[in-house]
């Protein structure tokens, strides 16, 4: 049986506000667009509710997911994940300030992001996998494996930057610890699927200081967005009740 009520409440709140919890990340927008092509072109409330009902029927966690979410150890790991993500989100501005000294590369607002898309591609900075609310098509396993892949991506990006910049060690350690907790949640959730992941080839593209600065800026900016998505995902996961 699908847990229709829970999903209904969740998504009604989501779309009534006119925004999705999961569309703030640039990387996810395409995925949402794929599932709900009218969402980004129509902002009417009626259509939003229509989408809501559609999603309500489709979204439902598996019974196994519900059991895993109720596990105290799982909850503990999730809570630790939340704490570590909050720590990373608090550290990113400090790290950015300490390591990015190129004019125009500011964290708030990240106005140059559209201009840096070509640089991102040329430097080999790939985007993390998209995170979405749990549904029949996007299970807890999927969510955790994508979190794991996304964290691993940023660990690799920072590792490539570490020889060139001072001040990334704490952030890398935080990501490592976050990954440890995600791995623990995966084990408790019984998931075995792994998101296909390919390590970025950033190190070979860091030819000069400017590339390092841009790559660092892009990595931190992208990491911040991804952490926000993790927070939303964790909130969505923790909202399920057995």
């Amino acid at each position: 049986m699908y847990d229709v009520d829970t999903a209904l409440v969740s998504f009604t709140l989501t779309f009534d506000t006119g925004r999705s919890h999961f569309v703030t990340s640039e990387s996810i927008r395409g995925v949402i667009h794929l599932y709900y092509p009218n969402y980004f072109t129509t902002h009417g409330r009626l259509l939003s509710l229509q989408c809501c009902l559609t999603v309500s029927v489709l979204s439902a966690p598996s019974p196994h997911n519900r059991l895993a979410v109720a596990d105290p150890q799982f909850k503990l790991a999730a809570d630790r994940c939340r704490t570590l993500v909050v720590k990373i989100l608090g550290d990113i501005p400090v790290v950015h300030q300490d390591t990015v000294h190129t004019a125009g590369l500011t964290l708030q607002p990240s106005s140059q992001m559209p201009m840096l898309q070509m640089m991102a591609s040329s430097l080999g900075i790939s985007t993390p996998p998209a995170l979405m609310p749990l549904s029949a098509h996007f299970t807890l396993e999927n969510s955790l494996s994508r979190m794991s892949a996304g964290i691993q991506l940023h660990q690799d990006l920072l590792q490539a930057l570490a020889p060139h910049l001072v001040g990334l060690d704490d952030l890398r350690a935080d990501l490592r610890d976050l990954h440890t907790q995600i791995t623990k949640m995966q084990a408790l959730g019984g998931g075995s699927s792994a998101e296909p992941y390919q390590s970025p080839d950033l190190a070979t593209h860091l030819h000069g200081d400017y590339e390092i600065q841009v790559a660092n800026h892009l990595t931190l900016t992208q990491l911040r967005a991804f952490c926000h998505d993790i927070v939303r995902s964790m909130r969505n996961i923790s909202a399920y009740r057995p």
Binding site: R80, L84, D169, R172, R176, D177, Q181
Partner: peptide
């Protein structure tokens, strides 16, 4: 010990 040598919650 530097931060990388210990794990939070570990």
């Amino acid at each position: 010990l530097p931060r990388g040598d210990f794990v939070l919650y570990g």
